[in-house]
Nucleic acid binder design. Structure first.
Length: 131
DNA sequence: TTTAGGG
DNA sequence: CCCTAAA
């Protein structure tokens, strides 16, 4: 796992564990959307397909494990931290999580997870922004 | 406009 | 990836 990902996980864990001290979380999750790589290709007349990078998947999985999915969950956080502006990546991350869940045969009960309090989510993002 | 799921 | 009912 890349350093910045481990760094992100570590900081989020602290925040989750009531580490109220406003620690700065400054981690940039590279998004391949920022670079039209060779791995990208067009599907018919549709948009360019862009496989998620290993880092993106790792960040997605870890954040979802820690924050759950759905509103203010890991999917959203992964998205926000990737600094994307369109809804494109969010959809991709959501779909990726779904495929991972099926591939891992995760029981339905554990797919949802508890959405984190908006307060915590905001704190994580704020820390990131200020960092 | 964003969320959440099916297509 | 796309489409879209609901919120």
């Amino acid at each position: 796992m890349k350093r910045h990902v481990a760094e992100l996980i570590d900081k989020i864990e602290k925040l989750c564990n009531e580490g109220h001290q406003t620690e700065s979380v400054s981690v940039h999750i590279p998004s391949t959307y920022e670079r039209e790589g060779p791995s990208s290709h067009t599907i018919g007349q549709r948009r360019t397909r862009r496989p998620l990078s290993v880092d993106e998947v790792e960040a997605l999985v870890r954040t979802v494990e820690l924050l759950g999915v759905g509103r203010g969950g890991g999917v959203r956080l992964s998205y926000e931290l990737s600094r994307m502006q369109t809804t494109g990546l969010l959809e991709i991350l959501k779909d990726k999580w779904n495929t991972l869940v099926h591939a891992a045969r995760i029981p339905p009960e554990r797919r949802k997870g508890e959405p984190i309090p908006q307060e915590l989510f905001d704190r994580v993002l704020t820390a990131h922004t200020l960092g």
